[in-house]
């Protein structure tokens, strides 16, 4: 019995393969706008940065503004609150990482790493790292925040001290434009 081998691909097969391949590429390219239209629009992205006026905020006071659809805590700490926060060793924290978008991912959660150049200004994303509720300021045993949903407590640097929240409150990217104005995002 003679060996049978597969027939050589003919020019006829090539044209069908080429047509199908080009067609498949076309379908993929055509699909992209339908997928991309669900991404945030230009006007949503224009709101990705905000500027906050710090002048009306007194020491010991917190202001909540909206940033990227979430609450943003802007808190002016008293020297006592700063000292309390600095007294806590990182080893005693539930979450040892700074969670600060302005620093490297592995920066430790020292009080210095939770603020920018001005230690009295604490700017945090006001979303509990457990399941997303908004914690209440000046409540809880650590002088920071208490989340009423499941009892998580944060200290005066926004670090989680009692769970069930697993992480410290996030510090967003921000920079001071002047002594009284900060740009967040």
């Amino acid at each position: 019995m003679a060996d049978t081998t597969a027939p050589e691909p003919t020019r006829r097969d090539f044209i069908y393969v080429a047509t199908t391949a080009v067609g498949a590429v076309g379908v993929a390219l055509a699909a992209w706008p339908f997928i991309d239209q669900m991404n945030p629009t230009g006007s949503v992205l224009a709101m990705s940065s905000i500027e906050v006026d710090l002048s009306p905020i007194k020491p010991g006071q917190q202001v909540v503004v909206t940033w990227r659809s979430h609450p943003l805590f802007v808190r002016r700490r008293t020297p006592k609150e700063i000292a309390e926060s600095r007294a806590v060793p990182v080893s005693a924290l539930i979450d040892p990482l700074a969670r600060n978008a302005n620093l490297a991912d592995d920066a430790p959660a020292t009080d210095k790493n939770r603020v920018e150049s001005k230690a009295e200004w604490l700017i945090l994303v006001g979303v509990c790292t457990h399941l997303g509720c908004t914690p209440t300021a000046f409540e809880g045993n650590f002088g920071g925040w208490l989340c009423h949903c499941h009892g998580s407590q944060y200290d005066t640097a926004g670090r989680v001290r009692r769970g069930p929240a697993p992480q410290n409150l996030a510090v967003p990217k921000y920079a001071f434009l002047s002594d009284t104005r900060v740009k967040v995002g």
Binding site: D36, Q37, T41, G42
Partner: peptide, 10 residues
């Protein structure tokens, strides 16, 4: 037309 990605095309 102006804002949504490819909205003008759709």
């Amino acid at each position: 037309m102006r804002d949504v990605n490819y909205g003008w095309l759709l």
